[in-house]
Design a protein around this nucleic acid. Structure first.
Length: 801
RNA sequence: GCUCGAGUGGCGGAAUGGUAGACGCAAGGGACUUAAAAUCCCUCGCCCUCAAAAGCGUACCGGUUCGAGUCCGGUCUCGAGCACCA
């Protein structure tokens, strides 16, 4: 029987479906648990991309191995289904976004099923199911009750094209992450989540996670913890004072002016009559600037003198106070002390405005600020000290003066959580005329998204839900007339906790049963793209920590181990895109080469985490290997299959294979595991006989990567049932421990010959062999042997003069 | 500018500090075939050579070591992220 991928693949897809082969009984605690999670896809209209199966195959391989190793495996899939494209399609076609979304989900599901992933579809979940978002809304209400959700009228990133506000994380270079439309700053009423309250824990508890270093680093940078000193500056001739935050308190003696952000509340209060007009004009101008404009004007440091002076607490020196938009209102205290000689921004500003400069660290400051470490000068008691020492000394002095204390600051801002869109979870809140907020009673959840005649947002930012029927909008509760919230949640809401719902997706009483949550979390491995390194992964961690605080989950972190798959690029090495014309459709590959070939190709192309170009030739090579492996159990080779012990001629090759594959799978090093399988198959073709148990062991491992072909081979070997729960192969350490070893022999570190020696040979024995080798002696004779390095089983190195 | 990662044949890539290039792709030669496909065998870093041996070779410069693709310092290039965060 020859390998016919389409017949085999449809046969086994049907088998798994009919036998519920991969259904997980979450209540079975008798076996160790293994929870492998893929980042669930947004079901776009384009259907599956060849990038999707890459990460999915990786987790699928692990799950298939774990089942054979006796684990109870939870491997679910679902849909991150709220989102803008469906809403835009709805607007254009005047059709409810759910119709479009459900159609896409059905298509995605069909495509994913064709790829042979061992998902338990009974756990399938979509963020748009009211039974799901009921609990998204419930979590929001708990946050509100714990003072973590609040309304504020604040300057936000508003995108007129999208008709909605965006979170800081969603704005890139002043443009929207989705669509690349311009974003402007304008004040609007928004729901905000106090993620900053968790900044400290979000940073500290990264420690101990088995995550890629770069992702940990990105999260740390985003949270942006920095330790410094908050210093109080009094105003000359006034009651008021302001605080500044600095990480370079050691330079305080060099502070020659201070700057307030345009948004700083003291600007209006402090400004002198003479400067009033100029300052007001400047502040107005600054408030109009969008993030994009601020970025493009990066180098230009302008500002206006406030007309008042402050007192430097360390030396009583009187210094001018400016307002300048290079100071951010939203970081630290919104005010800075400026040390032109040792800070590049202050240097530029001082040069432009002709301000005094006092050097306080040794070095050259004639052209630019000196920011490195050096002994201090002009700094009284701190003279001669290096930065670290001076920081301690000056901080101590400020503490004594009551003018400063050590503080920690974060770059992380609160999370703007409302969106002026239709296709999202309704925020389950109501407000009265005075702006007091009330949560929807929990027994009324889910608050279902109402039907609308028109999904279009208004250009001034009024949400589509404000066009809902008055009977939905106006509520009477406890005798009060209330109006429903018309903002909806961002797409990140539903994806912030879906891994919990998979455990118990139909529970109507709770997010999931507490004993199941305790048993199944944390997720053992989470695989997905690095594009979510800060957004989704930070939000999910935040929600998880909140759920931990209110006792819903029992572990502090949701995802113990995280891995990012690299992108699959087009065959020209560029990112796949329609405009580049290098897009590969997985459906076509399944039809031409089969799902197993696609899986094998993507796993073999290179390390999982690396970017890999598509290659049709390599894909054909993958197919060739499947056919070659398949022929091992087909008629022509069947006579070679023997069960008697004397036919174990592949002892070493097989046992080494089991060891290598087990270790490599564990490390997600699928490319090298596959290469070893190829070596084994090559060895099989050279062998006169094939020991049947070895071939069966091979088929089990091979089936993790190519499950369809694997099942078919298993059947050809005479088995009646799926191999999914067969025992994982074990290896015999003795079989791979050879008595003799090929020992490299080098002279002065250059390899000269390979000697066949006993593994336990002594140095004298090995040297005797080396002396018998003309290849070695050619480089030794006539020289004095100065040293001999012998590492048994590794190398013999003769050092000559 | 800052942070992190990466640079190995024609290509994708392998190598606990110990024989660089496993495995695969592409290419070339051969067997089988009327022929093709498939399959099987051989060659395949550079240089020199009929051949062998020697020599050179993991971006570049230097260091540590008996021995460096691997460790350390510096330079260059590419990729990702952040970007007035005081």
């Amino acid at each position: 029987m020859s390998y016919n991928h389409s017949a085999i693949e449809s046969k086994w897809a049907k088998y798994w479906d009919e036998h519920d082969t991969f259904k997980c009984d979450v209540h079975d605690f008798s076996k160790p648990k293994y929870y492998a999670l893929d980042m669930f896809p947004y079901p776009s209209g384009q259907g599956l991309h060849v990038g999707h199966p890459e990460g999915y195959t990786a987790t699928d391989i692990l799950c298939r191995m774990r089942r054979m190793q006796g684990y109870n495996v939870l491997h679910p899939m679902g849909w991150d289904a709220f989102g803008l494209p469906a809403e835009q399609f709805a607007i254009q076609n005047n059709q409810h976004p759910e119709i479009f979304t459900r159609k896409n989900i059905a298509h995605f599901k069909e495509q994913i099923k064709a790829l042979g992933f061992s998902y338990d579809w009974s756990k399938e979940t979509a963020t748009i199911d009211s039974g799901y978002y009921k609990w998204t809304q419930w979590i929001f209400i708990q946050m509100f009750k714990h003072d973590l959700a609040y309304v504020d009228n604040i300057p936000v990133n508003y995108c007129p094209e999208l008709g909605t506000v965006l979170a800081n994380e969603e704005v890139i270079d002043g443009k929207s992450e989705r669509g690349g439309f311009p974003v402007i700053r304008m004040p609007m009423r928004q729901w905000i989540l106090k993620i900053t309250k968790y900044a400290d824990r979000l940073e500290k508890e990264l420690e101990g996670l088995d995550w890629p270093k770069s992702t940990l680093e990105m999260q740390r940078n985003w949270i942006g913890r920095s330790t410094g000193v908050q210093i109080r500056f009094n105003i000359k001739g006034a009651e008021e004072h302001f605080d500044v935050f600095t990480t370079r308190v050691d330079t305080l003696f060099g502070c020659t002016y201070c700057c307030l952000a345009p948004e700083h509340p003291l600007v209006k209060k402090l400004v002198s009559d003479a400067q009033k007009e100029a300052v007001e004009a400047y502040v107005t101008e600054a408030s109009k600037k969008s993030d994009l404009m601020r970025t493009s004007l990066e180098k230009d440091k302008n500002g206006v003198y406030l007309g008042v002076n402050a007192i430097n607490p360390i030396n009583g020196k009187e210094i001018p106070v400016y307002v300048a938009d290079y100071v951010l209102g939203s970081y630290g205290t919104g005010a800075v002390m400026a040390v032109p000689t040792h800070d590049e921004r202050d240097y530029a500003f001082a040069k432009k405005h002709g301000l005094e400069m006092i050097q306080v660290l040794e070095g050259d400051v004639s052209e630019t600020a000196m920011t490195g470490d050096a002994p201090h000068m002009n700094s009284d008691f701190a003279n001669g000290m290096m930065i670290a020492e001076a920081k301690v000394a000056i901080t101590k002095k400020l503490e004594e003066l009551g003018a400063g204390k050590e503080v920690v600051n974060y770059k992380l801002r609160d999370w703007i959580f409302s969106r002026q869109r239709y296709w999202g979870e309704p925020i389950p809140m109501m407000h009265d005329k005075d702006g007091n907020e009330f949560p929807v009673p929990e027994e009324e959840l889910p608050l279902v998204l109402p039907e609308l005649a028109d999904y279009q947002p208004t250009r001034d930012g009024k949400p589509p839900l404000s066009k809902a029927d008055a009977s939905w909008l106006n509520v009477e509760s406890d005798g009060k007339a209330l109006e429903r919230e018309t903002n909806t949640m961002p797409q990140w809401a539903g994806s912030s906790w879906y891994y919990i719902r998979y455990i118990d997706p139909n529970n109507e009483e709770a997010i999931a049963a507490p004993e199941l949550i305790e048993h199944w979390l944390p997720v053992d491995i989470y695989v997905g793209g690095q594009e979510h390194a800060v957004l989704h992964l930070l939000y999910a961690r935040f929600w998880h920590k909140f759920l931990y605080d209110i006792g819903v989950v029992k572990c502090k972190e949701p995802f113990q181990k995280l891995y990012h798959q690299g992108m699959i690029l087009g065959s020209n090495g560029e990112k796949m895109s329609k405009s580049r014309g290098n897009v590969v459709n997985p459906d076509d590959i399944v039809a031409s080469n089969g799902a197993d070939s696609l899986r094998l190709f993507e796993m073999f192309a290179g390390p999982l985490s690396e970017m890999k170009p598509w290659s049709t030739e390599s894909l054909n090579g993958a197919t060739r290997f499947i056919e070659r492996a398949f022929r091992l159990v087909s008629e022509e080779n069947y006579t070679k299959l023997l069960s008697d012990e004397n036919s174990k001629e592949l002892d070493y090759s097989y046992n080494f294979l089991v060891k290598k594959v087990t270790e490599d799978f564990e490390a997600l090093a699928f490319n090298t595991a596959i290469s070893q399988m190829m070596v084994f198959v090559n060895d099989c073709y050279k062998a006169k006989s094939l020991y049947r148990p070895y071939i069966e062991g091979f088929v089990k491992m091979f089936s993790c990567i190519c499950p369809f072909a694997g099942e078919e081979m298993w059947e050809l070997l005479g088995h009646k049932e799926s191999l999914a729960y067969e025992a994982w192969p074990t290896f015999d350490e003795k079989a791979i421990t050879l008595d003799t070893v090929k020992l490299a022999c080098s002279v002065n570190g250059k390899m000269r010959d390979v000697l066949e020696v006993s593994k336990t040979a002594t140095q004298d024995e090995v040297m005797a062999l080396a002396k018998a080798s003309s290849k070695v002696m050619a480089f030794v004779e006539g020289h004095e042997i100065k040293k001999i390095i012998y590492v048994p089983g590794r190398i013999l190195n003769i050092v000559v003069a």
